[in-house]
Every structure is written in structure tokens, then in C-alpha cells.
């Protein structure tokens, strides 16, 4: 399935957001996720189904002013 992950198209076999993070080796309590402009809490990722061309943002902490 083709997904837009952090702005880039990728073909990934994943039915849910949790599957996707696992497939791409994303792991950590510090990750934040959104799909199509809406926040998906970490506890909701396993039940959150993905569809073709969903826009997924995966963010993590970084330095800021």
C-alpha cells in the first residue's frame, strides 16, 4: 500500500498505524503520530486502520527555542 510518510511516498505492508511503525523500525515513547492532519494517540495506534495514500506524520522531540 502506498502511504505518504513524513512527506514522502513509500510502499509499505501495514494495516494499522502500529503495524507501520513496527515495519519502519520506529520505536519509543517519545514518538507522536498524526494521520491526515489528526492526532492519533499512542494507545490508539494498534486499532487505527490505514488506507492508500494516507498522510502520516511521525514526529519526535528535538531542540527548540
Amino acid at each position: 500500500m502506498t502511504l505518504i510518510i513524513n512527506g514522502e511516498e513509500q510502499d509499505v505492508a501495514a494495516e494499522t498505524l502500529a503495524d507501520l511503525l513496527l515495519a519502519l523500525d520506529y520505536e519509543g515513547e517519545w514518538l507522536a503520530t498524526a494521520v491526515n492532519g489528526e492526532l492519533v494517540h499512542r494507545e490508539d495506534r494498534a486499532a487505527f486502520p490505514l488506507g492508500a495514500f494516507d498522510r502520516i506524520e511521525i514526529l519526535s522531540p528535538m531542540q527548540g527555542g
Binding site: N6, G7, L24, D25, Y26, E27, G28, W30, L31, A32, E57, I58, L59, S60, P61, M62, Q63, G64, G65
Partner: peptide
């Protein structure tokens, strides 16, 4: 202290190091 969020490209590793530092 102020912090930010940015797209993670390395499997969550770089953000994790900063998260733990803070």
C-alpha cells in the same frame, strides 16, 4: 526549557536521545 517536535527519520533514535537528555 523550551523544546520542539520535528519529523523523525531515523526510527525514533535521534529524538529519543534528546528526550532522555531533557
Amino acid at each position: 526549557v523550551t523544546v520542539s517536535l520535528r519529523r523523525e527519520t531515523s526510527g525514533g533514535k535521534s529524538g529519543g536521545a534528546f528526550f532522555e537528555l531533557i
